[in-house]
Design a protein around this nucleic acid. Structure first.
Lengths: 219, 219
DNA sequence: ATATTTCTGTTGTATTTACAACAAAAAGAG
DNA sequence: CTCTTTTTGTTGTAAATACAACAGAAATAT
């Protein structure tokens, strides 16, 4: 695990915590890690998990496939980001979605039970980690809310505008690249890929935007 | 605020904390409360808030209206539940949605900054509240995820089935009532009300379910 | 009790979407 | 480089949805 200290110290979970203390906590957290090949599942809908996951390298999609094979991509996880934390606290429910590696990945697993059950006043950085987790959860919440706003739009065009203008805002630029190919973007916005491609072309013809592969410019 | 102790002690935020300690904390939290008439806004999209909100009585909808007047209801808040907590922690962003009273309501406001900035090991119940907040946030997250799953469905019928069967699961019964009228349910599922009414009628004719006002039975 | 307002279901039409099929372009494998 | 696979854009058609208008039922106000 020590070879991943660089990435760990840059995570939201360990923000503001010294290398030394991070190392100390890896024991408290029963830290383990595991490699996943592209396409492998870290967890699946219906399972119960008791560890939070931190992506050390690679890329992971949180998604959910329904009975008819329609895929819905909830979010993309990048190296250094956390996932599964909403299910890993005691007394939780079955996981509602899949986590799948979209490239070869390494995932760390941390068990928070000790942090939560043992009096956390014991050491200051236990409280710090819990506070970090709290703040990370509020970020997750706001991201989910933002995605809800995108896919609550009634038409494909409105969904695209909602998503793309939000991306422009995040990147503080009218030109940006997105982490999805066309099929993935369609799965993210819950629309049909070909219809979406068609709508993008129309919007380009109308002079609303230009794009080349994953690079978009709003006009 | 003391007249609301009964409801406060039953909130997730103060779960497991004695009456005495709750009273003590109301000071730390700079607790205030305010009455809202039906239709009044507790906060609006774009505002910045620094207090979490706890509904002491009444009913609140978290929702978001777009430029064209389409409403999207994110969630219903019942007495004893919390809202706004994802925006009330330090360094947050503008609120993404409105909170509006759907009946005359009383809302308590708590400022968490002291809890978060002053070393929380100072008193054990500070840590307890933060842990409660953490758990509440994971619940919120799972609820948002569940709603995402509902509205990611491609057709009105699938959305209805997804939502109604989840309600049946939550109530552990095929018969249950929902907290929305038809327009509100349509706004919650991001579909047109009349089209949804139509679909409900079709489903009833096909023997999938029966309903009377807000009471549904899945068959 | 009566009048007014809100809620719900129904219908028809125009718009939008999903779906399928296909060709060109791009990416990847051997 | 050549062949294969994947990705993307395009088109036509069937299906689903939004929208508007309206009538009856239910709730609320006077």
């Amino acid at each position: 695990m020590k070879k991943y200290m660089d990435i760990l110290k840059r995570t939201k979970l360990f923000s503001g915590i010294s290398d030394e203390n991070i190392k100390a906590m890896l024991g408290c957290l029963s830290a383990t890690h595991k490699d996943f090949k592209k396409g492998e599942y870290i967890f699946r809908q219906g399972e119960y998990i008791d560890t939070i996951c931190v992506l050390l390298s690679g890329s992971v999609h949180i998604q959910s496939d329904d009975y008819w094979g329609n895929r819905s991509i909830i979010s993309e996880v990048c190296a250094g980001e956390m996932f599964g934390e909403s299910y890993a606290v005691h007394g939780s429910t079955a996981v509602l979605n899949d986590a799948v590696a979209t490239t070869d990945s390494v995932v760390a697993f941390f068990n928070l039970n000790k942090l939560m059950t043992v009096c956390s006043s014991a050491c200051a950085f236990h409280s710090a980690v819990i506070q970090n987790l709290l703040i990370a959860l509020t970020h997750k919440n706001r991201n989910l809310m933002q995605k809800l706003i995108h896919i609550s739009k009634r038409t494909t065009r409105e969904k695209l505008i909602s998503y793309l203008s939000n991306q422009a805002k995040i990147n503080s630029s009218n030109s940006f690249s997105i982490p999805f190919n066309r099929q993935q973007l369609a799965d993210f916005l819950s629309v049909d890929r070909s219809a979406m491609s068609n709508e993008l072309s129309k919007m380009r013809n109308e002079g609303l935007l230009t794009f080349d592969k994953n690079n978009f410019t709003l006009l």
